[in-house]
Design a protein around this nucleic acid. Structure first.
Lengths: 143, 143
DNA sequence: TATTGTTATACTCTATAACTATA
DNA sequence: TATAGTTATAGAGTATAACAATA
């Protein structure tokens, strides 16, 4: 039987958030394994589906991902025939889902619904509206 | 004025958690910059302070950090004279705070208190007991 | 002058495999 | 056989700097 440490940080809000976030992201990542996509990739398909014609800089701003780091993400999804690029400018490309991308997006959406529902069942006794409001407040920060 | 995307994932619990966690960890990291320590290092000082004589494997288990990744963490804190190792076994070392480590631990504790208080002020209208309970439930997962 | 896409690069965090020595 | 510490390594994720083409 392994020794258990007295843990004075386990009750800190920041670490509770970190653990809860890690658990949910790991669960989502495992669930999305069924479509062969990572959470960030599934999210991009959903965002492009909701905003056909958007450009990758806009996606990066919405997701908090730097332009430089969007390049391999979009290139990967395009190479796998999930996304199409068509020039709008001389410098940017309108993104849209291919038929295969739309099919994947629908599956991702269903997987995310089931993923959320699984945790919602766990939170039956919790005011979810208040929980979401609290998380939004925290995310907005102290400043 | 930059175009704003319609964002159907911003309301998902997992992403709310991720953003809230990122904001709090960034704030804590910035605050701990005053002691020249990262959040994980401050946490280790607090855990060793509460559990003198513990070994690094136990810390790793408490923090969800693999043994291999504990090595440079403990080595760094020992090299900076925050931690002391004394052999208990032929294979493991009891960890304790040096005087310098205890001084840093106290400062870290104060910084973490202020950090938490800043966000608690933001959550004046929230049932924090219920918030913490919800986060614990999520962290424990669906299984 | 600001923005878009891009390359290159680096640093952190995390993960596994393999080894040693000890229990 | 299991555990503690270690090394090496690989993969994400994220950050900056710099550049070309375009607005």
């Amino acid at each position: 039987m392994p020794k258990e440490l007295h843990d004075p940080i386990a009750s800190r809000l920041g670490y509770l958030l970190r653990r809860a976030s890690a658990t949910m992201m790991a669960d989502l990542g495992e669930a999305l394994g069924a479509v062969g996509l990572r959470p960030v990739e599934g999210t991009i398909l959903i965002l492009v589906g909701a905003n056909p014609g958007c450009i990758q800089s806009e996606l990066g701003r919405a997701l908090g991902i730097k332009r430089a780091n969007m390049v391999p993400l979009i290139a990967g999804l395009t190479a796998q025939n999930y996304l199409e690029k068509s020039p709008v400018d001389g410098r940017s490309f309108a993104l849209s889902l291919t038929p295969r991308g739309e099919e994947a997006r629908a599956r991702v959406d269903g997987i995310m619904d089931a993923h959320e529902a699984g945790f919602a069942r766990l939170l039956a006794d919790v005011d979810q509206q208040q929980l979401r409001a609290a998380l939004s407040l925290i995310a907005s920060g102290r400043d």
